[in-house]
Amino acid sequence: MLSAQSAVIVRATLPVVGANLDTITETFYASMFADRPELLDGLFNRGNQRNGDQRRALAGAVAAFAGALVARPDVRPDALLSRIAHKHVAVGVTDDQYVIVHKYLFGAIAEVLGDAITPEIAAAWDEVYWLMAGTLIAMEARLYAEAGARDGATWRRWQVVERREETEEVVSLVLRPRGDEPVPPARPGQYVSVRVRMPDGVHQLRQYTLSWDGADGLRRITVKRADEGEVSGLLHATVAEGDELTLSAPFGDVALGEGDAPIVLASAGIGCTPITAMLHHLARTKDTRRVLLLHADRSRAAHALRGDMERLADALPAGKRIFWYEKDGEGQGRDGRMDLEGVDVPKGAVVYLCGPLEFMRSARAQLIRAGVRPKDVHYEVFGPDLLLGVA
């Protein structure tokens, strides 16, 4: 809980700090990497550093957490941080790194805001930081324990036993674990980090959903080659059957839940990967819930995992699927982008949503207009969460 004295100060200074958070986070990352370049080797995604996504996500997370604290100082807004905790353990964040971040973040605040940061203001925001950090450290400790690991040591070697070209831009890799140690279980919709050494010697991590989790220990990741994606490009260009990859344990706070409520699975593009994993689980368990599968793509040819989605949805006792294609649908889907006008969205449905940000904002708004409660819309984001704080 935030102390009463700090709550007054944070509430009064939040507009000024919030207005400068983008500059503060930019200064923070620049100074930290200048002094600690080793953090870019195997921990931070340098692609997200270049395009600014990580900076904007951090600013949004800090603002959302501080705003929630001052709105209800007696309640710690843990729910806001669950997604961040899963992302952290997927890349192996350790407790001592919060001390490093604190040093450079508060140095950036002092540099950007100058004399406006009095000792009292600094102390209040220090309390916010350590409430946030302490919550994350506790969450991450639990997640590491559940994965049978500690101090970020969740890594394991896996062998590629099959490579399948899904589309011109998407490849699936079926993997078998090396060694005899038990494999941490995966929930439908979770992701793993893949750790690769780049040509310049720097290790980079990227998260990829387990699009299939086989009962025999095999697992599958499905990777889209991004335009400027150095890791996805390397995987597409170099990985062949027989090669080995280093993977983390599975993590992710958006996973298919139990219950008897109807389910809506909505995706666009490569957002089909967690949705396909959920479909595999529903089909394997012969789930009798009503399931509405909605997917939008550029074209039928660009629709990765289309065969899996069709087969699995059709196998469900109460399954229905609707696909949208912007072009070349060949009569196998509706034309254009996803439009839920006239679609019978089940009453009381729980929604799982994944795709580009623009798509998720549109689909979420349409589903809420169709009667879905906002709290029942669960979304997965590939990369930093730029939807954080959306009501």
Rank of each mutant, 00 (worst) to 15 (best):
A226F: 12
W125I: 02
R321I: 06
E310S: 10
R178S: 15
R369C: 12
V16I: 11
H295Q: 15
V62R: 01
L357P: 10
A123W: 00
D253Y: 12
W212K: 11
A110K: 06
A108M: 01
L387Y: 04
S248D: 03
D253S: 13
K375G: 15
G329K: 00
S3T: 14
P250N: 04
G371N: 04
A59N: 05
H280Q: 12
D297F: 06
D96V: 13
P182C: 02
F323E: 10
Q159T: 15
P274S: 01
P250I: 06
D53C: 14
D344W: 01
I270V: 11
Y144N: 05
R337M: 08
D344F: 03
A4L: 10
K286S: 15
V101N: 09
G333M: 00
V264E: 04
V377F: 08
F382W: 07
D115L: 15
V70Y: 10
V350A: 10
A7M: 03
R306K: 12
R300S: 09
R157V: 07
P374R: 05
Y144R: 02
P184Q: 07
P185L: 08
K320L: 12
R36W: 08
Q159F: 05
A116K: 06
W125Y: 01
L316M: 04
P250E: 03
E127N: 02
R306N: 10
G257L: 11
V101E: 04
G217W: 08
E120K: 11
Y144L: 06
C272D: 07
L218S: 13
R176H: 13
A283F: 03
G201F: 07
D243K: 07
L234R: 14
I24A: 04
G52H: 01
M1K: 13
A261W: 05
L279Y: 04
R306G: 09
L210C: 03
G179M: 03
P119F: 01
A133C: 00
K286V: 13
G333W: 02
K320A: 12
D53S: 15
T118K: 07
A110D: 05
M198Q: 08
D96G: 13
K375C: 15
A268R: 03
V8T: 14
S267C: 12
P177K: 03
D126M: 05
V128E: 00
A19E: 14
I270D: 00
V291T: 03
T209C: 04
V194I: 12
V254D: 07
V174G: 07
T246F: 14
D335S: 15
L357K: 10
R373E: 15
H303E: 03
A249H: 01
A153L: 10
E380I: 00
F65E: 13
A304V: 06
Y98T: 04
G307Y: 08
H203V: 12
D328Q: 06
Y129E: 02
E162W: 06
L386A: 08
L113Q: 00
T285Q: 11
A85L: 05
V350C: 10
P317V: 08
A138P: 09
I24D: 01
G342D: 04
L173D: 03
V99E: 12
R142Q: 09
N20A: 14
N51K: 11
M198K: 06
N48K: 12
S6P: 14
M309C: 13
A34L: 09
L294A: 09
D53K: 15
T222N: 05
T135P: 07
G217T: 08
S3C: 13
P262E: 04
T209R: 02
A85I: 01
I24Y: 00
